[in-house]
């Protein structure tokens, strides 16, 4: 396995933050290729900020190195999947939402693009909805499109910021299963922020817990054999470890 992402001495503070404290102070992290890294931590500990720095949406000091080159601005090699259902372009159909980014990133051959889009939609089970507009979809379907859009681009990293947090429990479980399957079959590296310990254990091949200031207080590989359920052997132990890490003073 090789390192795909390397974060060295990352500092981030917001200029309009009144007390001037750093949201992330001296964060170091390495991510292996094809890893599914789940990031947990209390609200406000800097999970979103970390993803946004990696995505290139925020300025920061320190280094974020992707495949050997430093990250400075957003790029299609790091695709964000947001929590909000409103991340699709409402003026494009489901097909268009997946096709447009491909077209913008230099995929000139229309027939080839069509094949890629149809393939991506099939992976998230939305082939039948290709001609729908986002406002005609449910929240879960919209998140599936966002995932298909990311997969189709074959980015080096997919950065997911609580993509399932706003879904009902059943849909959430459904999408978790789909994402798990995709993460095992696709050649992709995923950073996945969540508040849900169970979700992290089910999906992640590695879990980390952040504390205020972006301090990593827990960082362990998750080698349990997938698919994992709460009744899997060892689940309770990991769950307890992570919970303790989150609530540790």
């Amino acid at each position: 396995m090789s390192t795909i992402l390397e974060i060295k001495d990352l500092h981030k503070s917001f200029s309009d933050n009144p007390d001037g404290t750093e949201v992330l102070s001296s964060l170091d992290l390495e991510v292996e290729k094809n890893e599914f890294l789940c990031i947990l931590g209390h609200s406000g500990c800097g999970k979103t900020t970390l993803l946004r720095c990696i995505a290139g949406f925020e300025s920061f000091t320190g280094q974020v190195i992707l495949n050997g080159s430093a990250v400075t601005s957003p790029s299609p090699d790091r695709i964000m999947v947001f929590q909000t259902f409103e991340q699709l372009f409402p003026w494009k159909t489901v097909f268009g939402n997946v096709d447009f980014p491909l077209k913008q990133t230099g995929h000139k051959d229309k027939a080839e693009r069509k094949r890629v889009v149809e393939d991506a939609l099939k992976k998230v089970r939305l082939s039948e909805y290709a001609h729908y507009y986002p406002h005609q979809l449910s929240g879960g379907m919209k998140q599936r499109v966002a995932i298909a859009r990311a997969l189709a681009l074959k980015p080096k990293l997919i950065l997911m910021d609580e993509p399932f947090a706003a879904l009902d429990a059943m849909t959430r479980r459904e999408l978790q299963n789909e994402l798990l399957l995709l993460s095992q079959t696709e050649d992709c590296t995923i950073l996945f922020v969540t508040h849900n310990i169970q979700e992290a254990i089910i999906l992640g091949t590695r879990n980390i817990v952040l504390h205020k200031g972006g301090k990593i207080v827990y960082d362990k590989r998750n080698d349990m054999e997938k698919p994992i359920s709460p009744s899997s052997e060892g689940f309770g132990r990991i769950w307890q470890e992570m919970r303790d890490a989150i609530y540790m003073e």
């Binding site: 964000m80 947001f82 699709l88 372009f89 003026w91 447009f100 990133t105």
Partner: peptide, 28 residues
């Protein structure tokens, strides 16, 4: 909405392309 702008920037749109392909349709 900021989210459309960021989704656009994420796929490499900036300047004129962001204006024509995101700002314009989003304000129809």
């Amino acid at each position: 909405p900021m989210i459309y702008v960021e989704a656009g920037r994420n796929i490499g749109l900036k300047g004129a392309s962001l204006l024509f392909k995101v700002y314009l349709p989003a304000s129809t």
